[in-house]
Amino acid sequence: MKASAQQAGESPSVLIDGRIKELGDWRGELLARLRALIKDADPDIVEEWKWRGVPVWEHAGIICTGETYKSVVKMTFAKSASLEDPAGLFNSSLEGNTRRAIDFKQGDEVNEKALKALIRAAVTLNTAKPKKR
């Protein structure tokens, strides 16, 4: 998806639709499926298009991104180092102090229940009131 489409005033949702269509393979199908799970987990999620073509989902701040590469679809959670991950979904970017990611390769199973719980936990973290000192 070209940056010019964004400059032409396309909405982030339309740009994400375009990315899914443009991929035209398992990555597009998986990105569409992950997008549906994100929206199902949090109907108030806001779609954004940032950093020259990265789908981003926000609720009181960034929840996650949906990056596509040649061999993976990567969901990077912005504050995931602070999230419990009892299902062990995070499998990438584990060394960081803030972010964690889930790399999906072609044919990987998606644990929908655990992924939705992780998304809801990220929303809860973003919407929690900061502690007073």
Rank of each mutant, 00 (worst) to 15 (best):
M1S: 01
K2E: 04
K2Y: 09
K2V: 07
S4W: 07
A5W: 01
Q6P: 04
Q6S: 06
Q7H: 11
S11Q: 05
S13H: 07
S13P: 06
S13Q: 08
I16T: 08
D17M: 03
D17R: 00
R19K: 14
R19T: 14
K21V: 14
E22W: 08
E22Y: 03
L23D: 07
L23G: 01
G24F: 07
G24P: 12
W26R: 05
W26P: 15
W26H: 03
R27Q: 04
R27Y: 08
G28H: 08
L31Y: 08
L31N: 00
R35M: 03
R35P: 03
A36F: 04
A36M: 04
A36Y: 12
L37C: 01
I38S: 15
D40F: 00
D40N: 14
D40S: 13
A41C: 05
A41Q: 00
A41Y: 03
D42I: 03
D42E: 10
D44N: 14
D44C: 00
V46R: 13
E47W: 00
W51R: 11
R52A: 09
R52K: 15
R52S: 10
G53C: 09
G53M: 04
G53L: 02
V54P: 06
V54E: 09
P55D: 09
E58R: 14
E58Q: 09
H59K: 06
H59M: 03
A60M: 10
I62G: 15
I62A: 14
I62H: 14
I63N: 08
I63E: 05
G66C: 05
G66I: 05
G66D: 06
E67D: 04
E67Q: 05
E67W: 08
T68F: 01
T68I: 15
T68P: 05
T68N: 10
K70P: 08
K70N: 07
S71A: 11
V72C: 13
V73Y: 10
V73D: 10
V73H: 01
T76L: 14
F77V: 06
K79Y: 12
S80M: 02
S80L: 04
A81C: 11
A81N: 02
S82D: 14
L83N: 07
L83K: 08
E84T: 13
P86Y: 11
P86E: 07
G88Y: 00
N91F: 08
S92D: 10
S92M: 06
S93F: 13
L94Q: 13
E95K: 09
E95Q: 07
G96W: 15
G96D: 15
N97S: 13
T98I: 08
R99D: 02
R99K: 15
R100Q: 13
R100G: 08
A101C: 02
A101N: 00
A101S: 11
I102K: 01
I102R: 13
I102L: 03
F104T: 11
F104N: 06
K105Q: 11
G107E: 05
E109H: 09
E109M: 06
N111Y: 01
E112D: 03
E112I: 08
A114Y: 07
L115M: 01
L115F: 15
L115Q: 11
K116N: 14
A117W: 12
L118T: 10
I119K: 02
I119S: 09
R120N: 03
A122M: 03
A122G: 12
L125P: 02
N126Y: 10
N126E: 01
N126A: 05
N126G: 02
T127Q: 12
A128I: 06
P130K: 13
K132V: 12
R133D: 11
